[in-house]
Design a protein around this nucleic acid. Structure first.
Lengths: 209, 209, 209, 209
DNA sequence: CATGAATGAGGCTTCATTCAT
DNA sequence: TATGAATGAAGCCTCATTCAT
């Protein structure tokens, strides 16, 4: 069997095992057995547990980013770009639960060098969202100035909400990724529009803690 | 030395170690040494690594819920309750980074029985947020009916955004928990208000993917 | 059982195993079994195979140097010091064949950091022999000047001869260490005396290769 | 490429690897790569690691013996034969450090069946030296009878001294093999001559240990 | 002739856990 | 109450060796 095929089998098995068990709890024995090969072959092709995990992170991160990129239609208004991107994201996460678990849970809980890998991808996505918010502000010719840090905070909030909803959607039967995306758009976009119009929430005097 | 004190030392050491290393990578040796006691004593008091981790999760979950509960002022309008709760949450997370890491990262990545423990707490918090959204809707005497599932989705989104912002606030120097909470309120509350007024975002015809 | 005793048992087993099998071929399993303890205990006390081997080298080197030092009577003429030292050396090597094998064979064939350890001991012994040769020359009030490098070469030759004879004596039944030492003294001392008197061997003209 | 050439490449690579790493630490992978062939070919030609190492020992032993034999001029006086043989030996060892390491260090530290192989060669060389000592005694028409065992001991001492000096010469820059050989002749031959004349070293009464 | 693909066996090391005092 | 001493089980990794082409 050619090397490339075997390598894919191993990576698939590794993503599944790492996603379900975690980096430390996953054993190379289990991965090899699930891949239907002997352990030495895993080492021959992928060198070490650490490199194998890193390769999984990279592959899944690339696949996720690529799925979102493929879903987004450039040139359309910012809200539609976000809508398309979210639907692609939720769909991909739902179809690749183990890969999503590797990225969202496992890679971020085992320190260096894994956290760095996935942080790079997250930074890329947050950058994209930040850009969309800015584009929306320009499109709306809004009066308000949004401070850079405020936009960064918004982007983090939106991405975090999406990540959380991905888990909710995956775990709750009968919720389509389209519906999840709509929920998030309703939640987020109206808030963003208000912000662009300079409307902010503020604690009424006397009630602040 | 009285048992309660010793036990607290051990739990403190365990939370710190589990939070920084993860459940599997943390060793009982390290925890015992950090606590300044011998390993058999840890077993005498806390029985096993699994029970110790579970105890950590419970303690930190209780502390977090308690902190939020203590921050919220009952009787005030829903948006103020949310505002107070968020501030309490961000403050607590910032002051207990290891405990927060145990709850947010470590407990959720190591399957049963730990995920169940922390899921219970999360469900409780989401329930509280769900209640607040409903209360706000009633207060606003809003016309729109929010479907139960939609409210659940909103609550998940809001909690996820808060969790993500907690990580952002902890990791970005110079951002106070008050500022983080304000960012989230601006982002979320306006969106919620619009929803209560029946305004929804919808893809314009022809642009939908 | 107290730690010191256990540690000695392990070191004894390790010296025996390393001496007979070599560093790589000796397994920690075998050493632990020979010492009558479980493998984790070996690691608890001696950390790693490499440290264990290094500890063996150091212990055996110290024992050998100490044996020679104890055998030599300071203050007597140089030839008697050498004679006493050789007898002590051959006796010690014969009584500790595994330790001698560790030093002479195993430590020198497995690169850094082991070769350095044993080289230090060998340098010490060669320095002692070098000193004895110089002392003998002064005692003899000899006319000849011995170049420093020539003395170093002689010391290396003498030590090498002794090492070789240790193997011969150990392997040939019926040869006492006293007899071995006498053989070497006869061989070496006369040559040294001649050298001190300026007599050298030289190829006759015409026969040189 | 003809088999003989390939085989030589493999043996060269094996000698180099075994000489530098030792028998156990050398891997067949490394040898094959160094030889520029695939691993199965090594097995096809040389059957197993053990046979490969044995073949290396035999080849290097033959080469060494052959080099000494070629250097010795039969028919000349014994001391000149020894002088020529030593020079050939030191030169060969200096020019083939890996081969010399295989014979002197590696083959002797890994038990059967390797030790036997190299012991045979050493016995042959010691036999030659023994013969030379006897011949010298006859040439000198010496009065003294040298016991057979004493001669054996002398031969072992001389060979050991030569082996030690080979290491010294290889490791000390600026020392030619001719100089090394001269050092050893000076050291050894005078001692031998004295012995043949019945002069022995003996501990003075009262100083013996 | 030559090799890419594959593995059984075994070695080093760590860890959660227990016992005797 | 508290601990020094000890281990069974398991994990990561490597290596000599073979087979199908």
């Amino acid at each position: 069997m050619p090397r490339a095929v075997r390598e894919r089998q191993m990576m698939d098995a590794a993503v599944q095992t790492f996603g379900q068990r975690g980096y430390r709890a996953a054993s190379m024995d289990e991965i090899a057995e699930l891949a239907g090969v002997s352990k030495p072959l895993v080492y021959l092709y992928l060198n070490s547990k650490e490199e194998l995990f890193t390769a999984c992170i990279r592959r899944e991160a690339s696949a996720l980013v690529e799925a979102v990129r493929a879903g987004v239609e450039p040139g359309v208004p910012a809200d539609h770009q976000l809508w398309n991107g979210l639907r692609a994201f939720f769909t991909h996460a739902a179809e690749n639960p183990d890969g999503w678990a590797v990225l969202h849970h496992q890679a971020r809980t085992h320190g260096e060098p894994f956290a760095t890998e996935v942080a790079a991808m997250r930074t890329e996505i947050i950058g994209f969202v930040t850009y969309l918010i800015g584009a929306a502000a320009r499109e709306a010719a809004c009066d308000a100035e949004l401070a850079e840090r405020e936009v960064a905070g918004l982007a983090h909030a939106l991405v975090g909400a999406a990540e959380s909803l991905a888990g909710w959607g995956n775990g709750t039967p009968g919720v389509s990724s389209k519906e999840t995306a709509a929920t998030l758009m309703n939640f987020a976009w109206a808030g963003l529009e208000n912000l662009m119009n300079g409307q902010r929430w503020a604690p009424s005097p006397g009630n602040a803690g």
